[in-house]
Design a protein around this nucleic acid. Structure first.
Length: 245
DNA sequence: AACTAGTTCAACCGCGTAGTT
DNA sequence: AAACTACGCGGTTGAACTAGT
């Protein structure tokens, strides 16, 4: 099969977008929507390929884009979801309203990967937990172990628990996700994106312990308004409470 | 002030795939 | 069923920016 060229190379502009181009794209989409990306630049009078327009819109111009630095909570969510999903940036972005896959990918490569690497090094070089928590307090860097502290409304008590507990939590968390078939999460994601919470509940029944099931039901029944991020954080955090399968 | 090295992030490229003819 | 189109995704690049010397 011969792939059609993404765009006619001749005469199409590349590189950074100008303010005028942005304005043209915004006003065109505002007035006509973006039914056909390929046709859009021609119709809008832009010398760009459709792909470039789509990227510019989805990554930068969309009105619901949240600009600015990522909060620690967002970063922790990315780390947690990346643990779960791998480099599925769009899936991760779907759980972080206002953030784009590209942005998340960049943050991962520029900040989070380094942070985790650093944490790993610290952990292997200095097994004493006290040292780790001290270093976390001294710097803005925080490790996996901070996830269940900073992200967890459901495990508030963990703030008063020992650092050992938090690290153990993360270890067991990692262990749990290794144990869970990846297809489970794929299905969950699909159902969740379809709003099919009942199916998630029933899957939880099959796959998880009754404790987790109770919590999931509670979440799905009572917290429809809760945003996606909180939902997934709770799913994630509760996985650690599961008994050994 | 000038230069260099490192970092960040917007944008591009190519691939996979769903949808259409 | 095959050919083709269009879209979305993940990996990569390179210009702009920042920090260090």
């Amino acid at each position: 099969m011969v792939r059609a060229p993404c765009c006619e190379k001749m005469g199409l502009k590349k590189g950074p977008w100008t303010a005028e181009e942005d304005q043209i794209l915004i006003s065109y989409i505002h007035n006509h929507g973006h039914g056909n990306w390929r046709a859009l630049p021609k119709l809008a009078g832009l010398l760009r390929c459709g792909k470039s327009c789509r990227l510019r819109w989805t990554n930068y111009l969309r009105p619901d884009i949240k600009r600015g630095n990522f909060t620690r909570e967002e970063e922790d969510t990315i780390i947690a979801l990346h643990q779960m999903l791998g480099n599925k940036w769009s899936a991760i972005a779907a759980k972080l309203p206002g953030r784009t896959d590209n942005e998340i990918k960049n943050v991962w490569h520029t900040h989070l990967k380094k942070r985790l690497k650093k944490t790993d090094t610290e952990t292997t070089q200095e097994p004493k937990r006290k040292t780790q928590i001290e270093s976390n307090e001294e710097t803005t860097t925080h490790s996996y172990s901070s996830i269940d502290v900073s992200c967890s409304g459901a495990t508030e008590s963990s703030t008063s628990s020992t650092v050992e507990n938090s690290q153990n939590s993360m270890e067991s968390l990692n262990h749990e996700f290794e144990e869970i078939d990846e297809s489970f999460w794929t299905e969950i994601l699909q159902m969740e994106s379809n709003g099919d919470y009942n199916s998630i509940d029933s899957m939880a029944t099959e796959e998880f312990s009754s404790d987790f099931m109770d919590e999931t039901s509670l979440l799905s029944a009572g917290s429809r308004d809760e945003d996606d991020m909180n939902f997934w954080l709770r799913v994630f955090l509760h996985a650690e409470e599961l008994p050994e399968i």
